[in-house]
């Protein structure tokens, strides 16, 4: 549950920072519009156009918002998986499906499970006589239950 809350918190924080980001975009646009307006009015008196450098608060806001949004994107990536077979299979044995959760806390769709499950559940090892006896017991009990 704590992990879920953390992810939701990340998303909310990213949303908030995205609004700051779009606000800095808007401020920069307004600033450049104002500068060009001043330039056109100043062009009547002087021929040199003023260099439109951005105010430092817009620059800081843009850079900080970029960093925080990219941090949110990094935290939203799915966990990586070990590529070496022995490390990967060891993780699989130790943790099971819980080791392969995605960022939403659900087991990945491409989770394959035990790579040797075909060997471990071989039909040749099934004790068919025992299963037949169990089935006969079940039928007998079921008949009694239905009879009662």
């Amino acid at each position: 549950m704590a992990a879920d809350k953390g992810i939701v918190g990340d998303m909310v924080a990213s949303m908030l920072w995205f609004s700051a980001y779009s606000y800095s975009c808007y401020s920069a646009q307004e600033h450049s519009a104002l500068q060009s307006f001043r330039a056109t009015t100043a062009a009547l008196t002087s021929s040199t156009p003023t260099a439109a450098s951005l105010p430092v608060d817009i620059v800081i806001e843009t850079i900080v918002a970029t960093l925080v949004i990219s941090l949110g994107l990094v935290l939203g990536t799915r966990p990586l998986r070990p590529i070496q077979w022995n490390v990967w299979a060891g993780k699989l044995e130790r943790e099971g499906p819980e080791g392969f959760l995605d960022s939403e806390g659900e087991v990945n769709k491409d989770y394959v499970g035990n790579p040797f499950r075909l060997l471990e559940a071989r039909p040749g090892f099934v004790d068919i006589r025992k299963q037949r006896k169990e089935f006969a017991e079940w039928v007998k009990n079921g008949g009694q239950i239905q009879g009662n």
Binding site: R78, L80, Q84
Partner: peptide, 17 residues
């Protein structure tokens, strides 16, 4: 020391995204 192709694919896809 064999590698797991699915994991390599998963990791590079995550990085690329």
């Amino acid at each position: 020391a064999p590698l797991v192709p699915e994991s390599i694919q998963h990791n590079s896809k995550t990085l690329y995204n």
